[in-house]
């Protein structure tokens, strides 16, 4: 039900993002979605990629501070604030907090990538409400 996300620690320094992407490009790994959150001192880049495990290995080998974790990718009807709201409402009613979220558009759908404070609880909500979640397999077909 979840997909793998790559998180990379980025120093707030000239060229670091470029360097990380260069490593992925060199390994011919596709980037499906990316977001960067930053403070004054450092940033974290989160990536959905075509081959997360290989991407993780490549970055690790090159001494990048990288972490692999599970996130949910939920597809919604595109351009519809209502369905977006419906989804967050379901999570809220399930007593869940969203730690972070980003989105990308794909084939007429809006895909929400999100991580909550409780992965098991989120699985429950997704299952019980029949939310349209994407798997690694789905992503590889994009």
């Amino acid at each position: 039900m979840t997909i793998n996300q790559i998180s990379v620690f980025l120093e707030n320094k000239y060229g670091t993002l470029n360097q990380v992407l260069g490593l992925l490009a060199g390994a011919e790994i596709g980037v499906i979605a990316a977001t960067v959150a930053d403070t004054q001192e450092f940033g974290i880049m989160r990536l959905i990629v075509s081959e997360p495990r290989r991407a993780y290995a490549v970055l690790k080998e090159n001494n990048v501070s990288v972490h692999l974790n599970d996130v949910f990718a939920i597809a919604l009807d595109r351009n519809c604030a209502g369905t977006f709201r419906d989804t967050t409402e379901l999570l809220t009613k399930g007593g869940l907090n969203i730690e972070y979220m980003y989105s990308f558009a794909c084939g007429g759908k809006l895909v929400l990538v999100l991580r909550t404070n409780n992965t098991e609880g989120t699985r429950d909500v997704v299952r019980r409400n029949g939310l349209n979640y994407l798997t690694e397999n789905d992503l590889s077909k994009l």
């Binding site: 996300q5 998180s7 620690f9 959150a37 403070t39 001192e41 450092f42 974290i44 989160r46 501070s65 990288v66 972490h67 974790n69 972070y100």
Partner: peptide
């Protein structure tokens, strides 16, 4: 430098700092 234990948790990093 961070060790290998980098965890993607923003709040944790800031707390560490």
């Amino acid at each position: 430098e961070l060790s290998d234990l980098f965890t993607d948790d923003y709040a944790e990093l800031q707390k560490l700092s």
